[in-house]
Amino acid sequence: MTIPEIESQIISEFSLFEDWMDKYNYLIELGKSLPLMDPHYKTDQYLISGCQSQVWLQAEYRDGKVFFTADSDAIITRGIVNLLIRVFTDQSPRDILDAGLAFLEQTGLREHLSPTRSNGLNAMIKQMKLYALVFQQKYEGKS
C-alpha cells in the first residue's frame, strides 16, 4: 500500500469513534500491539529529544525500503508511534520524504495532542524523515 492509501485507512478507522475517549482507547490498543523493540536499541543513541516521554526509534534500509522499530515508556506515545510506523515502514525514502501526513489533521490527532505532545509528534516525524534522507543519500546517491 502507498502512504496515502494507509493514511485514508487510518482516517476511516478514526471516523468510527464517537469521542476522544474512544480514540484514546484505540491509541492505547495500538500502544499495546506495537511490536517489541530489540532492547539493544533502547539507548541514548536512539532516543528522540523533544519528547516528554522517552521514545526510541531505529531504522533499517533493505531493498530500497525503510523499516522502522520504536518504543516508548508511555503507552499512548507507543500508540502514536505505532501509527507513524504503519504509515512509514516498508516505504521508499523518497515517499517518506514527500509524505504530507494530512491524516494527522483529519483524525484530529495533532489538534488533540497537547502542545508538548505535539512537539514530540513533530520530533518523531522529523527523526523518521531524517532516517529516510540519510538512507537516500547513502544508498541511492542523491543529495
Binding site: M21, Y24, S53, R117
Partner: peptide
Amino acid sequence: IHPYDAGMIIDKLGIAVRTG
C-alpha cells in the same frame, strides 16, 4: 502507568493537573 498517559486522559475529562 506513565504520568503522561494518565495526564492525557485526566485532561480530556476537563481536569487540569500537571504531569512530568
